[in-house]
């Protein structure tokens, strides 16, 4: 630590020892105690720190509550609010949340069952009928005898 570096510390960090870099703090303190030039420099820079300390702030009233009440809702809650905007009771929320998979399951089940039923219905497409006739043995003149 030399006077030049000591002055650099004062210019950057000011005169509060606790604000000086930890690794240089002790050396700077020793130099300040032993060197009158450093002491003079120190006094020169002290005024600004005194002024800065006058600038105090207070947490705005109710800000903590505002932060907590302004939290974005989880996805499930947002869906519930979108589906049923007037739900205020906390008891209903888990019930509705629990029923959501059931609703989704019913919708999926209905659509899948519908498509399966479609597959078993007789076709009325004439091209498919010709194709099926072509596969039929009787169409080639082969007689099938019942035993």
């Amino acid at each position: 630590m030399n006077i030049k570096r000591f002055q650099q510390l004062l210019e950057a960090y000011g005169t509060r020892e606790e604000n000086w870099p930890r690794e240089e703090r002790e050396a700077a303190r020793m130099l300040l105690q032993s060197n009158s030039d450093c002491e003079r420099l120190f006094q020169q820079y002290q005024q600004l720190d005194g002024y800065l300390d006058e600038y105090v702030t207070r947490i705005p009233a109710g800000l903590g509550e505002k932060i907590l009440s302004g939290l974005p809702m989880p996805l499930v809650d947002r869906i519930i609010s979108w589906l049923i905007p007037d739900v205020k009771s906390e008891i209903w929320k888990p019930a509705i949340a629990g029923s959501l998979p059931l609703v989704v399951g019913v919708i999926l089940g209905t659509s899948t069952l519908g498509s399966l039923l479609d597959a078993t219905e007789p076709t009325d497409n004439w091209e498919e009928e010709i194709y099926l006739l072509a596969l039929d043995d009787t169409a080639n003149g082969v007689e099938v005898f019942d035993e």
Binding site: Q8, E11, A12, Y13, G14, L48
Partner: peptide, 10 residues
């Protein structure tokens, strides 16, 4: 950072 603080304080 030290340079920023020194210029700001000045």
């Amino acid at each position: 950072l030290e340079s920023l603080m020194a210029r700001g304080r000045k």
